[in-house]
Design a protein around this nucleic acid. Sequence first.
DNA 1: ATGACGGTGTGGCACCGA
Length: 259
Amino acid sequence: MKLATWNINSLTVRLPQVLDWLAANPVDALCLQELKLSDDKFPRDALQQAGYHCAVFGQKTYNGVAILSRTPLREVVTNIPGFADEQSRVIAATLDTPRGPLRLVNGYFVNGQEPGSEKFAYKMRWLQALQDWLRGELAVHPELVVLGDFNVAAEDRDSWDPEGLRDTIHHTVQEREHFRALLQLGLHDSYRMFEQPEKTYSWWDYREFAFRRNRGLRIDYVLVSEALKARVTACTIDKAPRKNERPSDHAPVVVELAD
DNA sequence: ATGACGGTGTGGCACCGA
């Protein structure tokens, strides 16, 4: 089966691209971030017609996440339990597979703007709460996938300019420590389980022809639990949609699990 | 670097993202 994550930077604008992409890439589940619309504006009918059940946690203008799945979604949880958050950044759900239940945690991690800012402090609190929550979730759901827009370049090789951007947002020691803490919970970065081309990223700035110059960051991840690790057969970043007219600034990341 | 580009909501721009 195939799972994917894609920050689509406004579902209102990108719905046609999402439908086109799903037609060409009929994944079993697609996790979306940055819907930028409220639940009542979510295009449920169009996605249902495309063959997907939807669990939605929207928000007007900013944030908003959803899980689309070919099979029904159950036990839907929104945001990090116990962490008061006005922003819609997390949705979790279980889908049933021939191999048993699979728990998906879809996150639009905090950007943080600039180290030292109030937003950066919020990012740190949010990451700590996520980590504390996921520790328990892994115990309850051994077959767990954490995927989404992490807003962290985990290592130097995940940035087009690790030296020039050192200690700037996405590259700080504190953010990277939080990323490593997630791995230490027993999660594995699917993308790095395989040999990958050099300088592969999942996000490119809209400005300065960054995509054409491949000035990007790898900030979108699919982390899998220990129990799932052996089943991961591939992980790829699909750059094709970034070449569309009016593209999202992010590319989808796709993982294949053995049935 | 006051910048770029693009989405949103508003209102003739400001704010935010990464």
